[in-house]
Simulated scan of single mutants.
Amino acid sequence: MADLYLKNLESERRQLWATCRLKGLAKDTPERQRIAALDEAIAAHKDKAMDAG
Rank of each mutant, 00 (worst) to 15 (best):
K7V: 13
G53F: 13
E31H: 11
K23H: 10
A44D: 07
A41E: 09
W17M: 05
S11K: 09
I35F: 04
L16R: 03
K23E: 13
A2C: 02
A44S: 14
R21E: 07
I42T: 15
K23I: 01
A49V: 12
W17A: 07
A36V: 08
G53K: 03
W17R: 03
T19F: 02
A26D: 05
C20H: 01
P30R: 10
R32F: 11
E12M: 07
A26Q: 05
K48S: 12
R34C: 05
A36F: 06
K27V: 06
I35A: 03
K23A: 10
Q15L: 12
A43E: 13
A37N: 09
A52Y: 02
A36D: 05
A52S: 14
A43C: 08
R34G: 06
K7P: 03
M1E: 07
R32V: 14
Q15F: 15
Q33P: 04
K7S: 12
L25C: 07
G24P: 01
I42S: 13
D3N: 10
L25W: 09
Y5S: 02
I35L: 07
R14L: 10
D51I: 00
L9A: 14
T19A: 02
L6M: 10
R32P: 00
A26S: 08
K23G: 01
E31G: 05
L22D: 03
R34F: 08
A37T: 15
D39Y: 04
E10H: 08
I35G: 01
R14V: 15
L4D: 13
L22Q: 06
L9P: 05
R34L: 05
R13H: 13
A49S: 10
I35C: 05
A26C: 03
A37K: 11
G24M: 08
D39R: 02
D51S: 04
T19W: 01
